[in-house]
Amino acid sequence: MITRSDRFSWRSCVLFSFALVCVMLLCICAGSVSIPLADTLTALWNTLWGLEVPQGISKNIILNVRLPRVLNVALVGAALSLCGAAMQGLLRNPLADGSTLGVSSGAALGAVAALALGVKLPGIPDGGVMLTAMASAFLSLVLILSLAYVLDRSLSTHSIILIGVIFSMFASSVINLIISFAQEHIKSITFWTMGSLSGTGFSHTRILAAALLACGVIILRYGRELNAFAIGEDNARHIGVNVKKVKLIILITVSVLIGICVSIAGSIGFVGLVMPHMTRMLTGPNHKRLLPTALFSGAIFLLLADLAARTLLSPVELSIGVVTSLVGAVAFIIIFCQTRKAR
């Protein structure tokens, strides 16, 4: 017996926000140079109110290095987790995620191609890269889904993932190829396949926040429709969901978010797979609760993963994707076994 309310309660919102802030503070304090919590709080508080930050506090590290990075990690984690949750509902597939479906690799391929060809959008720095990444993410998603549909009309769990993985490998090798021809101005292949948020600044925070706000509102509004899809696409149609329209909107929104995340942070695997799954154990499958909770849990998870990547082998910094993939691969197998058992 499960008793749950239909909505994301204010109590959980406050609780999760508190946890998120705590983890963010922890991530600002910890690192190759560790900073006392009091210093961090003072620096943040004083800057917020326009006061002078006292001497002796590593203001630069706190405000210009760690704070933007922590904010970016949280935003990317929240976005990826939300996308994963939305796709798992839409495709009725608990293994769906940007990385397992090959969307992240598609976005990375678009970004790398745009960098190599020098695609630019006037006015917005990196705009061309982001736009290409979004378009490429959407095209990959459409390609993968239609391929899966041709192979297997029921869009079964396993055939989509199989095609996604093959597409990912293909995209990675093309990325590798492009990079070896145009080494000069493109970040390393490790960045595009494993991801990293080191060196990102407030300009990225603004873009990520705006994208997450816009796309997040859309996805959260479609919670009920996602519930219907998660129960079954036929059932969704029968109860009056405009399935084609909703599907298209969700797929575009997810592609936009993943495209932006990938062009800023590279493709960070498995966040969108693991966190929605763990969140679902807590909230149940109802997307009205699942989606907002997944935002928080995704942010917290990626913050901790980033912290681990920075500190485990300090001073060497691991790619953040190394940590998430280690966790994610294990989770993938567990979820895979569960779905096998369920049928």
């Binding site: 499960i2 239909d6 608990p94 519930n227 036929d234 059932n235 109860i239 149940g284 499958p285």
Partner: peptide, 24 residues
């Protein structure tokens, strides 16, 4: 419409599934 294939993939409650009937 009641279709023949009705399998649910996630652990929704009976009430949640029935309530979706009000979607329209």
């Amino acid at each position: 419409v009641l279709s023949q294939k009705n399998a649910v993939g996630y652990a929704y409650t009976v009430e949640e599934v029935v309530s979706l009937g009000r979607y329209a």
